[in-house]
Design a protein around this nucleic acid. Structure first.
Length: 470
RNA sequence: GUCCCGUUCGUCUAGUGGUUAGGACACCAGCCUUUCACGUUGGUAACACGGGUUCGAGCCCCGUACGGGACGCCA
């Protein structure tokens, strides 16, 4: 049997990391078993579903590299099929028409709650003669669920979970307006799509009992179920649209790499020995459901950031330069032309070594695109003392005589340090301040070389002039 | 309230009856160094609690506490 999984989000909000991880697990499980990964948009709630939300989901999945193997299926297009199956159930006596009004049901729930009983439908139309149907009321269709025994789910993550059927009531499968409810639509679609493994958040675990009842009434073969624990916010509270849930596209904006986010999400709730850094290929090779834990986990930005640094250092320089240019574009204090582009590309190997996010990276590269005079931060200013400026004036001609390869610059600086009896740091720091306006940057020789001789000397001159005035 | 699920360092986890309870992030200290990073060495730090079962329990059983989830003509 070929594995077929699906990610089935409802387009009513954003794609947050909980959904992203569910998609990732479905994708990895399918790939690991040589199967197919599908996407189904659960847009049966026409009121709340939006085209924008669909786009956000699609963009988020694309960014994460979790594209489905077939075009997405929109659940709303399947309403006729859902109704058809409901009629089948009705004809077979596995379902019945319920004429209870919304008002009636509300009262039923309120009374139950007030009396300390679980709020459930009392089955008042289950065995009532349809001839007694009140006129003018469109009925909903309810499943005639078993009243005795228990319903069991053999979950690949949660193990065998069972509930007494007395705990379950007769759920509505088709609303009075003829549209399907979620529980029913999911069963019909998973069946028709040939889904073999339903991998979803464990907030669906108790829903599964009701879905199993529908499968059984239909005599359909059930898929395997795997309910994975939820991700909570850093404070341990549930991730929701109001609380801590941010779109995966927001992570992109903040400078996280998709491979880092996937790596992080994979390790959240899943483990394989001491393996921490996992590429997509390794993840596909190693991932399986038996490594998934059962407890909810918390979002930890520090670890995500660390992982991002790891993947950033491993990333292709050209790709990073491109992203940096993109992030820097539009900043009025910068000049982004072929020259600055070349500087960024040249220095990228050293730049990426000390950045954690693409946003950090862009910030750290900004000095390469600055116009003179440079703005100096407080530490740089403090560093450019009278003595330091004198040193720079003395050093400038020697640099002017140096060919600007990294090795040659290094040699010049070392020679100057030796003849003046200074430590290298005593030379590098003032130089760094003059060239970058800050006290941290890639190695000074590489920085000088990337800037080029003309620009470097201009910056040194500008620094000695402007600082001397203060 | 009822039902379901869970609980190992601050966080993510390894661990499937016998371990000095391992790793990663974070944190602290040292080393490296041309700043910052990277790297590296070391350190602080956990089996929720109470009963069993067993020669022996983080691992098995039962309670308790705490946390989460589900109980819609939402998904």
């Amino acid at each position: 049997m070929t594995v077929r999984t699906r990610f089935a989000p409802s387009p009513t909000g954003l794609l947050h990391i909980g959904g992203a991880r569910t998609a990732l697990f479905n994708y990895l499980f399918a790939r690991h078993h040589g199967g197919t990964f599908l996407l189904r948009i659960e847009d049966t709630d026409r009121e709340r579903s939006t085209r924008e939300a669909v786009d956000v989901i699609l963009q988020g999945l694309a960014w994460l590299g979790l594209d489905p193997d077939e075009p997405p299926l929109f659940q709303s297009t399947r309403a006729p099929r859902h109704a058809e199956i409901a009629q089948t159930l009705l004809a077979a006596g596995h379902a019945y028409r319920c004429y209870a009004t919304a008002e009636e049901l509300r009262e039923m729930r309120e009374r139950a709650t007030a009396e300390g009983r679980p709020p459930r439908y009392d089955g008042r139309w289950r065995d009532r003669d349809p001839a007694e149907a009140p006129p003018g009321i469109a009925p909903a269709i309810r499943l005639r669920a078993p009243r005795e025994g228990e319903t069991v789910v053999h979950d690949l993550v949660q193990g065998t979970v069972r509930v007494a059927n007395t705990e379950l009531d007769d759920m509505i499968i088709l609303r009075s307006d003829g549209t399907p409810t979620y529980l029913h639509a999911v069963v019909v679609d998973d069946h028709d799509m040939g889904i073999t493994h339903v991998i979803r958040g464990d907030d669906h675990l108790t829903n599964t009992f009701r879905q199993v009842q529908i499968y059984d009434a239909l005599g359909w073969r059930k898929p395997e179920f795997a309910h994975i624990p939820l991700i909570h916010g850093a404070d341990g509270a549930k991730l929701s649209k109001r609380h801590g849930a941010v779109s995966v596209l927001e992570f992109e904006k903040q400078g996280f790499l998709p491979e880092a986010l996937c790596n992080y999400l994979l390790r959240l709730g899943w483990g394989h020995g001491d393996a921490e850094i996992l590429s997509r290929e390794e993840a596909i090779r190693l991932f399986d459901l038996d490594g998934v834990g059962r407890a909810a986990s918390r979002m930890d930005y520090a670890k995500l950031t660390h992982l991002n640094g790891v993947w950033l250092r491993a990333a292709d320089d050209a790709r990073l330069a491109e992203d940096t240019l993109h992030r820097l574009a539009g900043r009025p204090d910068l000049t982004l032309d072929a020259t600055t582009r070349a500087r960024i590309e040249t220095l990228m190997p050293a730049l990426k070594e000390r950045a954690k996010t693409l946003a950090d990276l862009a910030d750290s590269a900004a000095f390469l695109a600055r116009r003179l005079p440079l703005p100096f931060d407080a530490k740089a200013r403090a560093l450019l003392t009278e003595d330091a400026l004198a040193l720079l004036r003395e050093l400038a001609p020697k640099l002017a005589d140096t060919d600007f390869s990294v090795a040659a610059i290094d040699a010049t600086l070392r020679a100057y340090a030796e003849t003046t009896g200074r430590k290298l740091g005593a030379i590098a720091q003032p130089l760094r301040a003059a060239l970058t306006g800050a006290t941290t940057s890639p190695p000074i020789d590489a920085t000088l070389s990337a800037l080029g001789k003309t620009e470097s000397l201009a910056r040194i001159a500008a620094a000695t002039e402007t600082m001397a005035l203060i």
